[in-house]
Design a protein around this nucleic acid. Structure first.
Lengths: 182, 182
DNA sequence: GTCTATACTACGATAGAC
DNA sequence: GTCTATCGTAGTATAGAC
């Protein structure tokens, strides 16, 4: 073969990484196959050597992103560690750079409109994170509530126009969560 | 004129209503001008007698939806009334019918990617709701936190595959919010 | 104000050369 | 595996008839 066996893996990996960034920043449906391939220096036609459709790429992005995003949020016992984790999540840096942040606030609506297989992937990763937090918090209910609140705070903050109000939203959620888990 | 003065207003109103439903259900960017017009029984070309671009329509949808969605959430003092409001918001019916629900969980990501004017509109309405809740809750911080949590719970629930897990997410947020405001 | 027709661009996807 | 070329469709937007 004219290309090494590893080359395909590397190209696919680059495509996944680059497409995930693009999707979190601008939305998945708004960027075409041609644009996704150009972003890694290839032509649009080459896409179909790696995925049989654009939807299949989205499923792979969701799988990859959730396993990475949510793994970074897992915590091994200790509320101080969880609090530090939340401070990082609820930061202006996270609001301003969706492309390098958690996939859930950025792709939530598009995942919701995807087919069952994608939503099952999402569910299994989200449940895994919830169980992890529930261990530390000693409450399933509180773990779900905090998880929802974190994602909601980012969605809300990103919709706003004024950095100061954005900061207020983030700080409010952080403060109230700390109060809850104290 | 061959059409009454009122006819234009009525058509525009029908277009706004129908497009808002479509946007909340399927996303705004995924439906074309032609589809939006066909949904109210008109041809695509007639669109530009009402809006100069598709983006202008989106701005109008956001304005209209937020003024309506958020007005329904305003509450005049009394935590029981707020609790009933939240129970309604955090319901499976709301998860399953985004087209008739709140615009924030459904359009959040698209609003976030819109230009400044749209985000300013969003901010002013969201701040108004926050101030209203803060009056009842006697806490600005708690009002922001609960607002974020409600939106987040809907975003999360809609991403999931299993109704039972969806119900758990909703109930957890409801329970924890009630605990906070008790 | 709405229609049909159209210009122009972009989309997802495929075919064949290398 | 990647390229160029292409098919068929659908996108936003405009022009001119009624």
């Amino acid at each position: 073969m004219r290309y090494s066996a590893n080359h395909k893996l590397e190209t696919k990996e680059k495509l996944l990484q680059s497409s995930a960034v693009s999707a979190k920043k601008s939305g998945f449906s708004t960027v075409g196959v041609d644009g996704l391939m150009k972003a890694i220096g290839l032509s649009g036609g080459a896409f179909y050597s790696h995925f049989s459709s654009k939807d299949e790429l989205f499923a792979s992005i969701v799988e990859r992103e959730l396993s990475q995003s949510l793994a970074r949020l897992e915590v091994d016992q200790g509320r101080e560690r969880l609090e530090r984790c939340l401070k990082h999540y609820l930061s202006m840096a996270h609001v301003e750079t969706p492309e390098s942040g958690c996939a859930l606030p950025a792709l939530g609506a598009e995942i919701a409109r995807s087919d069952l297989m994608v939503r099952q992937q999402a569910e299994s990763w989200i449940c895994r994170l919830q169980k992890n937090w529930a261990l530390t918090l000693e409450s399933d209910s509180l773990a779900w509530a905090i998880l929802s609140q974190c994602i909601g705070a980012l969605v809300v903050a990103r919709m706003l126009a004024t950095p100061e109000v954005q900061r207020t939203v983030l700080k409010s959620s952080y403060d109230e969560i700390c109060r809850q888990i104290a």
